[in-house]
């Protein structure tokens, strides 16, 4: 090899590296600035007493924010509300999603319309749908109470009542999200080999037996996967709370993310808000890991 050849190779290598550098740079820069940076800052701020108005005058206070949290009744209430919401969401949405997935697998005329109708709410914005549902739930002029009184049931207070507010929000988010869960389960149903159904049909199994002994056991992994996803997303609920109840009445719909929002942007307690969000993240990771242990199953087909 002559020296010019070596120079050429070196040059090409340098260009190759430069191409990689420039291709990766925007992604890395963006993520570092807007995702990793703030995450590090969130963890750091959790140890400071600072307000949003002048974050420069922050004071290091060690674990004080975390100690305060342990004694903060509102924080514990928000965790409980989040757990109620997430538990309710999983228990409501998975069965509905499964029924809809099985239903939409049937080859019946018009099933495409049903599928489109179930998916539609997943495309439209939660904020706007919460505005509409807020009006549907309106005690005096809402659609639900028109329908209820139409069939002879007394009007309900819905969002204005401490006992019905969370349930009302759950029904909205079931309507909004059931399509996504259904889609995941539909994916799982597709993966079950056709022959299983054919063979069991020959053996005389009806639809009920097939659901019980083929579909459900083989869908276990997908169901658990859908459950983990659903739990993690439920932990982050904010928009319907902000639009419909602002955490009320009596704080029964104040979820942890809504509490973080209040702390940060209403009370301007940035340090404390960051500490609460760090704990929220840890709780989410722990719950996801616990559910993931359930996911680990030897069963394959």
């Amino acid at each position: 090899m002559t020296t010019t050849d070596q120079a050429l190779v070196r040059n090409r290598r340098r260009n190759y590296r430069l191409t990689i550098f420039w291709m990766m740079l925007p992604a890395i820069l963006g993520l570092a600035m807007f995702q990793y940076g703030p995450l590090v800052v969130a963890v750091r701020n959790g140890f400071f007493d600072m307000t949003l108005l002048n974050p420069e005058r922050a004071k290091f206070i060690g674990w004080a924010n975390y100690i305060k949290m342990a004694q903060d009744a509102r924080f514990w209430q928000s965790l409980r509300n989040t757990a109620i919401y997430s538990g309710g969401k999983v228990l409501l949405e998975l069965p509905f999603a499964l029924i809809l997935a099985v239903l939409s697998q049937q080859a019946i005329k018009g099933i495409g319309i049903v599928r489109t109708a179930v998916f539609a709410p997943t495309v439209t914005a939660m904020s706007t749908m919460a505005v509409i549902w807020n009006m549907m739930y309106h005690p005096q002029n809402g659609l639900f109470n028109s329908i209820l009184t139409g069939v002879g049931i007394p009007p309900q207070p819905f969002l204005t009542s401490a006992s019905q507010a969370m349930a009302s929000i759950l029904v909205l988010s079931l309507w909004k999200d059931v399509g996504s869960s259904m889609l995941i389960l539909l994916g799982g149903l597709q993966a079950i080999p056709e022959e299983f159904y054919e063979a069991s049909s020959i053996d005389g199994a009806g639809p009920w037996e097939q659901t019980r002994y083929i579909t459900l056991p083989l869908l276990r992994r997908t169901l658990l996967y859908a459950m983990v996803l659903l739990t993690v997303t439920s932990f982050k609920v904010f928009t319907p709370i902000y639009v419909m109840t602002k955490g009320g009445p009596l704080g029964v719909t104040r979820t942890t993310v809504y509490y973080v929002y209040e702390l940060g942007f209403k009370y301007l307690q940035m340090g404390y808000a960051s500490a609460v969000s760090v704990i929220l993240m840890i709780v989410m990771i722990v719950v996801a890991m616990l559910q993931n242990r359930l996911l680990r199953t030897e069963f394959e087909y």
Partner: peptide, 8 residues
């Protein structure tokens, strides 16, 4: 989650 980093 975005909700965790929103304040910073």
């Amino acid at each position: 989650p975005f909700e965790v980093i929103m304040v910073p």
